[in-house]
Simulated assay, not measured.
Amino acid sequence: MNAIDATREITVAVVRGKEQPFRIEQARIRGPRSDEVLVRIVATGLCHTDLIVRDQYYPVPLPIVLGHEGAGVIEAIGPEVKGLAVGDHVVLAYGACGHCKPCSSGHGAYCVDFYAQNFGGAAADGSNALQDADGAPLHDHFFAQSSFATYALARENNAVKVPDDAPLELLGPLGCGIQTGAGAVINSMKVTPGSSFAVYGAGAVGLSAVMAARVAGAAIIIAVDVVPSRLALARELGATHVIDSRTQDIVAAVQQISPGGVDYALESTGRADVLEQGVTALAKLGVIGVVGASKMGTQASFDVNNLLMGGRSIRGVVEGDSVPQVFIPQLVQLYLQGRFPFDRLVTFYPLAQINQAAEDSRRGITLKPILRIGG
Score class of each variant (00 low, 15 high):
L237S: 12
G375Y: 02
V317W: 02
L285N: 15
M1V: 15
E9L: 14
A136Q: 14
A93E: 03
I365P: 03
E36M: 02
L266D: 10
L345R: 05
D165Q: 05
T366S: 06
R30S: 11
G203F: 03
D244H: 00
V65C: 05
L231M: 10
D55E: 02
G206L: 11
R8F: 04
G120H: 11
R8T: 07
V279G: 01
Y94T: 12
V53C: 10
V162H: 06
S105N: 14
L207Q: 04
S322I: 08
V274D: 00
G194H: 05
Q330V: 01
E69S: 06
Q179L: 13
I288M: 07
T240R: 04
D140M: 07
F327T: 04
K101I: 15
L38Y: 07
A213R: 13
G183C: 10
H141Y: 13
S146C: 06
A202V: 07
D5A: 15
A3L: 13
L171I: 11
Q179E: 13
A272Q: 02
I257W: 04
T240F: 09
A184M: 08
I186W: 01
L38G: 08
M296S: 13
I373T: 08
P63G: 09
E75L: 07
D125A: 09
G364D: 00
G364L: 00
A85Y: 04
N187K: 02
P79F: 02
P167L: 08
P369R: 04
Y349K: 04
E236N: 01
D5V: 03
F148Y: 15
V254W: 00
Y335W: 08
P259D: 02
Q333D: 14
C47T: 13
V39R: 02
I24H: 08
R372A: 13
L66T: 09
A129K: 12
I24K: 05
R246H: 00
G67P: 05
Q256H: 13
G83T: 14
F342H: 05
A358N: 05
G95Y: 14
A166W: 10
F197Y: 10
D55W: 00
V290K: 01
A152Y: 00
G261P: 06
V12F: 02
I314L: 10
E169N: 09
G292F: 01
A216I: 11
A154H: 08
G72A: 11
V185Y: 03
V287C: 13
A198L: 08
G45R: 06
G238L: 12
V112H: 15
R8C: 10
L367P: 02
V215H: 14
